[in-house]
Amino acid sequence: MQWQTIFKKELTEHWRSFKWIWVPIVFIIFAIMDPLTMYYFPIIMDTVGNVPEGATMDFPTPSVAEAMIMSFSQLGLLGVLIAVVVSMGLVSKEVKSGVYELVLSKPVSFTNYITAKYVAILMLIAFSLAASLLVSWYYVNILFGTISFIQIVVSILFFIVYFMMILGIVMLFNSFLKSQGLVAFLSIITVVALNVVSSIYSHVITWSPTLISDYINVYFYSGQLETEIWFSSVAAVAITVISLIIATITLKNKAID
């Protein structure tokens, strides 16, 4: 009941600031930009490239899997950036402006406060991811060849799990920092560090959550789902839960002070 009130308040706030429109649109543009450019690359080079007379260039057309992976990797970079920026002020902004004290002057539990905010932003990001990757799948199907619907849906679900972890980390930094910029900066640093470490030791920590996108790529090439992707997803969920618990405890301690 109380949870739903905060959740609904969050959803209306996202809606009023047009997040439900601009985030999906930006994600869609990110996702389809690369496959489209690759497809029209020869034409683009012809019209603006100043190719010297007689020069022949062979551009290998990317395979279906490669084209689809382009969308995923684009979202893995720029999509993560947008997701962090959109969620950087969720708690820190309210703590700074005093709205937070107003909310907690009513008997609101910290767990409800954190989880309701988290689920609301997760819904927005999950929707944007699903919409953009489905649009991209549609384009890839027209331009490059067919990928089965099941394959794309499974990949989207695993990709959402990856973003779940990122949003969890952002919520964690939100709980003890007041500056939005610092929240975004530290979250991105953490995600990048996780990525670097797990790509260096990818043969050792095969369950690292940041390898989810790598396993999705393999899935597109081979059509076979690696078993490790399940361990990575469990690790991602575990990190999310731990982040949210620590965030709740931090807010509780802040209230006592």
Partner: peptide, 17 residues
Amino acid sequence: QLLLPLGVLQLILIIIA
């Protein structure tokens, strides 16, 4: 036909902004 949706999306983005 392929590029029109992209243009429409960008237009929507400008209008809501």
